[in-house]
Amino acid sequence: MKESRDAAAPLHLAIVRQAYNPYGGAERFVERALKALGENAVQITLITRNWGGEHKPGVKVKLLGAPRLGRLLRDITFTRSVRSLIKTQVFDLVQSHERIPGCDIFRAGDGVHASWLEQRARTLSPLGRLAQSLSPWHRYILRMEDRMFRDAKLRAVICNSEMVRQDIAHRYPQLASKLHVIHNGVDHVHFHPGLRELHREKVREQLGVPESTRVLLFVGSGFERKGVPQLIEALAQPALAQAELWVIGKDRHARRLQKRAERLGVASRVRFLGPKKDVAPYLGAADVFALPTLYDPMPNAAIEALASGLPVLTSTSSGAAELVRLGENGERVDALDIPGMAAAAHRLLEAMHDPLRCSTFRNASRASVDTLSNEAMAAQLVALYRQLLGGASQL
């Protein structure tokens, strides 16, 4: 049981994240929390095993060592260290972005591991499914996930999509009142429909791509999970015979996918552009954003694309699907339905090359995420913290 807190003291919030880098979702949360609450209102202790950021006022970093002898031992050690720390040090709230029992809040940014394995199993051979079911690491994560969701100390779960909320509510009905949908925010100043006028001509000229070419854009890491193999296969369908696919991101299996494109005869129409610090110019130059992911709770890249006026082709197992209005700002298909994916992409590409329909789609895409601002996300987080702390006045 937590001690009563001084109403004049800053909120002491612990955030648990195994590996911290400046570009991840948990990391962006820290930035937004500080900006929204102010350094005088919140003190953040970041509990991590790997710190890759810069020192920031209002943030203390607590490094917990973990052995580098495989992810299973690493995760077991980190979990035990976190549980020991939060038992001995008093925080007003402990918000974990990892599946660790004993924390006040779990932010389900990665969704439900059990659901991800179910979707992944659809792409595996019988032997692959057996190996997945016997994997010590997957078994450990599933066990920790179940223990965490059943732990009486868990007071709230932040879901970044309705898809995740419904999934957890179905699996753990007793948590229904503790599930809070807080969508990811997007920088509406940086991502906007005007990117088309700013960057389209220049980027296409640099890449040697004519204005008339239909371009699908993918942005992300984890190509296998997020649908790049399916996009390459879709590109070989007659409906997309005139289209190109631009792939932005880093993945250790990129060469394997390049060879797949060669075997399918579409290598000349698939461009692996590598990671980009700023994807805005490419959002301005492309026609349609494609992310037919096997499983993704709420991809930031899709929200950024919509904010930039691009319609989105995504899968029914993506949280972004709830932002899509069919025939208005995008399409959604099963992640493994290659003909359906090609047909949907073709419809969107043709619409974006029709001057009248293009304007309508761009406006609808932007409008679908108008309420998903960083400020709105921060306000919802503040409201949740107030609720959990009994309405502490300084928040």
Rank of each mutant, 00 (worst) to 15 (best):
L349V: 09
N374K: 00
F289R: 10
T360A: 15
I303Q: 14
A343C: 00
L349A: 04
A302S: 15
T360Q: 15
A378N: 08
A335Q: 01
D334G: 15
L313A: 02
N329V: 13
L349Y: 11
M377V: 09
R386M: 07
P311E: 05
N374R: 05
S365T: 06
R332S: 11
I338G: 06
N329W: 14
L326H: 05
G319A: 05
E322M: 01
V382D: 04
A351H: 06
L336T: 05
L381H: 10
L384H: 08
A307L: 01
L388W: 12
E322A: 09
E375A: 11
A351R: 11
R347M: 06
F361E: 03
D354F: 01
M298G: 03
E331T: 09
I303V: 15
A367L: 07
P339F: 09
L388P: 12
P355R: 08
P355K: 05
R332W: 08
A305S: 15
L349I: 10
V288W: 13
A379K: 09
M377C: 14
L388T: 11
A379G: 02
A351P: 01
P339G: 08
M298I: 02
A305M: 14
V312I: 12
D370I: 15
A343K: 10
T293A: 15
P292W: 07
E328G: 01
F289V: 10
V333E: 05
A383L: 11
L336H: 02
V324R: 04
E350C: 14
L336D: 07
V333L: 09
P355N: 06
D334T: 10
E375G: 06
R332P: 01
L349F: 09
E304R: 02
A321N: 10
A321Q: 14
L326A: 06
V369R: 01
S365V: 11
A343V: 04
R347A: 13
T371N: 12
V369W: 01
N300T: 06
G330T: 00
P292L: 08
R357L: 13
R362M: 13
A301M: 00
R357W: 04
R386G: 12
V382P: 05
T316I: 12
S315M: 03
P292Y: 09
V288M: 11
D334F: 12
P292I: 12
A383M: 11
R366W: 00
M298F: 13
T360I: 15
G309L: 09
S317E: 15
A364F: 11
L310W: 08
L294V: 13
A364C: 10
P311W: 07
A343L: 06
G330A: 00
H353I: 01
G340I: 07
H346Y: 05
L306N: 01
E322P: 02
V324P: 04
T316R: 14
L384R: 04
L313C: 02
T371W: 12
R386K: 15
E304V: 03
G340A: 10
D296S: 07
E375C: 02
A378P: 06
V333Q: 07
V369H: 02
A383E: 15
D337E: 03
L372T: 06
T316L: 14
N300R: 09
R347F: 08
A307N: 05
A321P: 10
L291S: 08
D354H: 05
V382Q: 13
P311C: 05
